[in-house]
Amino acid sequence: MFEIRFHGRGGQGSVIASEILSKAVFLEGKDVQSFPFFGVERRGAPVQAYTRIDDKPIRVKANIYTPDCVVVLDPSLLKSQNVTAGLKEGGYLLINTEKKPEELTIDFKGNMATVDATAIALKLGLGSKSAPIVNTAILGALAKVTGLVKLDSITAAISESVPNKPEANAAAAKEAFEKVLIRRMAA
């Protein structure tokens, strides 16, 4: 079982990201379960979404407390949220930021990755200038960092489920896949 927690802000598309990821994983024949943080979402407020992936049927119906991977869609959350809470040692931390993994001071023993998903989203005209939608870009990066799902499956899931600008969204995933910077944990 592989467990992912997404941190974002209401309106950024964290929940949709977990849904697209579910579809991509499902296309590859694995079992999947995704859910938003069971709360009252508001635009701009910190939100969380979760995804479980397994080769066997997933039976656990409970929140995720010790994820294998954390994805941060908004770097400003690093100041207010403990994004590494429960994150497994040796796991993955993927952050949307213009910084390189080496420039971040986060206490975490695992694989760190960064990608400027905001710049990619702005360039491709996803969302507005003040509120770019970074969820599809970040999924491309996630595919590269974890090797959990193929980029093709992500873009196929995007084409299937994104009503607005599916091509630009798929292009965002592809670009982030190529541009993501990864600092692997020393063996």
């Binding site: 977990s18 849904e19 579910s22 499902f26 079992d31 999947v32 379960q33 995704s34 859910f35 938003p36 069971f38 997933i58 119906k61 409970a62």
Partner: peptide
């Protein structure tokens, strides 16, 4: 169905 555990959870 249980709120959120099924209502808002995606499964195949």
């Amino acid at each position: 169905e249980d709120a959120f555990y099924l209502s808002h959870t995606i499964e195949a």
